[in-house]
Design a protein around this nucleic acid. Structure first.
Lengths: 332, 332
DNA sequence: CGATGATCGTGAATCGTTTCAAGCTACGCT
DNA sequence: AGCGTAGCTTGAAACGATTCACGATCATCG
């Protein structure tokens, strides 16, 4: 049994299809009695408007109201917080949000964007994996709004946090604590922002006349890998007295393992994380970290997208760069 | 500039629209030279097939290949893991997954389902908030597959974990450790599964002739609220010696705060969580917990959905109930 | 009484794609 | 030459909703 069409509703209610459509879209144009009759028919038949047909007809105004939010990994609290912020802003403006995972795969990213494109979504907020200028142009050509999260590029709107500054602040704080043998812990696949954090930290360390920034690269940015990093740390010829982790999850795992191994945090090793996820407060040693304004980031990105969608071709691309902030707790 | 249509491609390539369509859908029917010419035209014009029109034409076969995954809160690692499992299974079968948040709101849930319905999605896997039999019927009537996650209902496919058994196991383990003054910590809005866990635990405690199961209800199921629960615990007339938390996040916060307050875990208070999230291993005191087969749950649900979608009206609803498992670490 | 407007409804055209019966070529066979 | 066939291509119908110019009806007013 195929879904009911507007025609059957019209027949049932004894009116024309145009009238049914009016009841659906401009009820004030229809006399009350007719309206009720049509509504009753809709109810009885369980009619649901076929969005495909609707959108087909109105090529431009009919653009879907949903935006896609594409992130690499929906299992990562940082990503979900950003997405959440974006979704809230979109909802407020009466739009819906679809979340999609690119899974760190350029191939899957391509496929997902194609899906959004085919569905004629209003736009996409994306933490890009393989997305280049060509693809962005193609998306635009088909009328979609594109906003980059956490990455920059020419001729696009984007919202990002200044990660170099973040790395800078983190290293500066450790140095201020008198820690000079610093290590940086990161994980693969290493997102660009993590590289930038490292660069910021390395720069600051060099400027202060410090030694080399030892880098430990783990297999992922997870607590389990943080523990592994702690063990690798112990095997170093000389134990660093300050560690900067590319994210909080790594830091939490690292701290817990250090404590198990009898190393004092922050006495022996000061540890600073990045992100300020909710868990940071509730860690064994409350985590000193660099707060990323995640929700705001998502929020700003959504505003950019809405503006771009509304302004049409008059639009001029804008960029928002938010500054991270040091949150001092106990681990450093 | 409106997106290019198949007609313009046809004109550019000097063929008929039917041929372009054939290149798109049954390339083997088209002579190689023509095919190349059409493909070149597609490339040059940046043509993207209008999915709305495509689906409009083929009312049944044209059902979208995407499934919706609707959860209450995408910020919760349990939910994202389940969704992840489902997505992987769907992807393997060549389908896409859209994640959507109902935000614990029946109203938003309704809206989201409407969106999926209008887009003629293939189906939906959902942790229901306000979804009742009526709505399920309506979704079905419009051809969608519905599978419930973590909830049961008559006449629907669902996949769930036996939470009563989980509560049972948790309480049994604590009792076996000689702990008899038990507390249960949960949070609002309290999902049904948490209620079931509590019931299982209460039943087991009663059966063992134990006292009352003290229940602390916090404002959320988060680590921060876990810490608050720890403080409330200390104010009780008599400190429980065994605590069962409705999820791991609560347990992690609770343990960290207890340690800060000088209470030994597990010596003074044994703590058991629920979920076995990744962080459980890396907690300050590695967490004893009830493992939920989250990925499997999602996976099974996806299989059910795919089966239902494939079998059509011959389909008979099936249920999958997975059993949780005790994971003993150090906190209890 | 006829003209004027206001209020409601109608029905055909339209959107972009797929499908399919029918047409066209070129080729091989008798 | 005449015919059949295989291989390609065509063009129009169809999907379901929206839109808009046009009719129909009826009350009001000079």
């Amino acid at each position: 049994m195929p879904p009911t069409s507007i025609r059957e509703v019209a027949r049932r209610a004894g009116v024309s299809v145009g009238t049914v459509s009016n009841v659906l879209n401009r009820p004030d144009l229809v006399a009350e009695a007719t309206r009720d009759r049509v509504r009753a028919a809709i109810e009885e038949l369980g009619f649901v408007r076929n969005e495909s047909a609707r959108r087909l007809r109105q090529a431009d105004a009919g653009r879907a109201r949903a935006f896609g939010i594409v992130v690499e990994d929906l299992t990562n609290p940082y990503a979900t917080d950003v997405a959440r912020g974006a979704e809230m802003a979109l909802n407020e403006a009466g739009h819906d949000a679809l979340w999609l995972t690119s899974d760190h795969s350029a191939e899957k990213e391509r496929r997902i964007l194609e899906l959004l494109e085919e569905q004629r979504a209003a736009g996409v907020l994306i933490i890009p994996v393989g997305l280049g200028a060509t693809e962005i142009d193609r998306l635009r050509a088909s009328g979609m709004t594109v906003v980059l999260l956490d990455h920059s590029a020419p001729d696009v709107c984007f919202a990002q946090v200044d990660h170099v500054a973040g790395g800078d602040i983190a290293a500066g704080h450790l140095l201020g604590l008198g820690r000079e043998r610093l290590a940086f812990v990161t994980g693969l696949p290493e997102p660009l922002p993590c590289v930038e954090r490292r660069n910021g930290a390395a720069r600051t360390l060099a400027k202060a006349g410090g030694g080399e920034l030892v880098t430990l690269t783990q297999n992922a940015l997870t607590p389990t890998e943080g523990r592994a990093a702690a063990r690798r740390l112990m095997e170093l010829p000389e134990l660093p007295n300050g560690v900067f982790c590319a994210n909080d999850l790594l830091a939490i795992g690292l701290i817990n393992e250090l404590l198990r191994l009898g190393v004092g945090v922050p006495e022996d090793v000061a540890v600073i994380g990045y992100d300020d996820i909710e868990l940071a407060t509730s860690a064994a040693v409350p985590l000193t970290t660099i707060r990323q304004p995640r929700r705001e980031l998502g929020h700003e990105a959504a505003e950019l997208a809405l503006a771009e969608a509304a302004e049409g071709k008059r639009h001029r691309h804008r960029q928002v760069v938010l500054t991270p902030e040091l949150v001092i707790r106990e681990s450093a």
